[in-house]
Amino acid sequence: MNYINAILPSLIQGAQMTLSLFCWTLIISIPLGIIISLGLISHIKPLQLFLKFYVWIMRGTPLLLQLIFVFYGLPIIGVIFQRYDAALFAFILNYAAYFAEIFRGGFQAIPKGQYESAKVLRLTKMQTLRRIVIPQVVKIVIPSIGNEVINLIKDTSLVYVIGLGDLLRAGNVATARDVTLVPLVLVGVIYLAMTGIASYLLKKIENNYSKWK
């Protein structure tokens, strides 16, 4: 018990870094994903092709490679990020692409009659999106968004590759130093707690939206 109390502060500090990366990625990548999804279904061909290429690159290459490329590769051409900024930048680009595909599917699932009805009611395009389309899209995509949120919590462990002091790195350091599996077990428990809380909140949100007609 004394040993757990001794290593817990470093694990909590690592967990704070993990949660910070998780929260900022969600806050920025979800709205960005919505904007990209609108571009993907737009009638502007050059924009559509560019965004399709971006999504293809982000979804077709490992997030680990993207982290390494941003932190170790970009400085070769003079683009330098601090460790946290590099991780956040890579995560936002990656998850925005995944969210864009999810929202694209949601937008395309809305019947065309909804848009025609909005025209009859003389709603502008922005009013149609805000009042009619987006609420329905959110209801459709919540389960898929929930899966990505859980994946994001676990994917934050990849930042160890650029030396960022996250939860997993704190556990690895303690394990290597003290030659015991206890830190890694505690890391697993903390990850399970975070994913459990996220799953519970997402389920509540999903249940709330399922009541909408």
Results as ranks from 00 to 15, higher is better:
Leu67Gln: 06
Pro62Trp: 04
Gln66Ser: 09
Arg122Ala: 15
Val137Glu: 02
Gln127Asn: 11
Ser144Thr: 11
Glu116Asn: 05
Val137Trp: 00
Lys139Ser: 12
Ile132Val: 15
Thr128Ser: 09
Tyr95Pro: 04
Val141Met: 04
Tyr72His: 13
Arg59Ala: 09
Arg59Met: 06
Asp155Gly: 12
Ile153Gly: 02
Leu64Val: 11
Pro75Ser: 12
Tyr95Glu: 07
Tyr54Gln: 03
Trp56Tyr: 13
Glu101Ala: 04
Ala96Val: 10
Ala97Ile: 04
Gly78Ser: 08
Tyr115Lys: 05
Gly146His: 00
Gln127Ala: 14
Asn147Tyr: 10
Gln66Gly: 12
Glu101Gln: 03
Leu74Tyr: 04
Leu63Pro: 04
Ile80Gly: 01
Ala87Lys: 04
Glu148Trp: 05
Ala118Gly: 08
Leu63Ser: 07
Ala86Ser: 10
Val138Ile: 15
Thr128Arg: 00
Tyr115Leu: 12
Gln127Arg: 11
Ala118Tyr: 08
Lys139Trp: 01
Gly78Val: 11
Val55Ser: 03
Tyr84Val: 09
Asp155Leu: 03
Ile77Asn: 06
Glu148Pro: 02
Gly113Leu: 09
Ile80Trp: 07
Phe103His: 00
Pro135Trp: 05
Asp85Tyr: 13
Thr124Ser: 15
Ser157Phe: 08
Leu152Pro: 00
Ser117Gln: 07
Ser157Arg: 05
Ile110Met: 03
Ala87Leu: 08
Arg130Pro: 07
Phe71Lys: 11
Glu116Leu: 04
Pro111Cys: 07
Ile132Asp: 08
Ile76Cys: 08
Val138Met: 13
Lys119Glu: 15
Ile134Ala: 05
Ile68Gly: 02
Leu64Trp: 02
Leu63Tyr: 04
Lys125Trp: 10
Gly60Asn: 07
Ile57Ser: 08
Lys119Asp: 14
Ile153Leu: 13
Ile150Gly: 07
Tyr98Ala: 02
Ala100Gln: 06
Tyr72Gln: 06
Glu148Arg: 05
Gly73Thr: 12
Val137Arg: 01
Ala100Thr: 12
Pro111Thr: 10
Thr124Arg: 07
Ile150Tyr: 02
Ile153Ser: 03
Leu93Ala: 15
Arg131Cys: 11
Ala100Leu: 03
Asp85Thr: 14
Ile68Asn: 01
Glu101Met: 01
Val79Lys: 07
Leu63His: 03
Ile150Val: 15
Gly105Glu: 00
Ile77Trp: 11
Gly73Trp: 01
Val55Cys: 11
Arg122Glu: 13
Ala90Gln: 00
Ala90Ile: 08
Met126Lys: 11
Val137Phe: 06
Leu65Pro: 10
Lys112Arg: 12
Leu121Lys: 04
Asp85Arg: 10
Leu129Asp: 05
Trp56His: 10
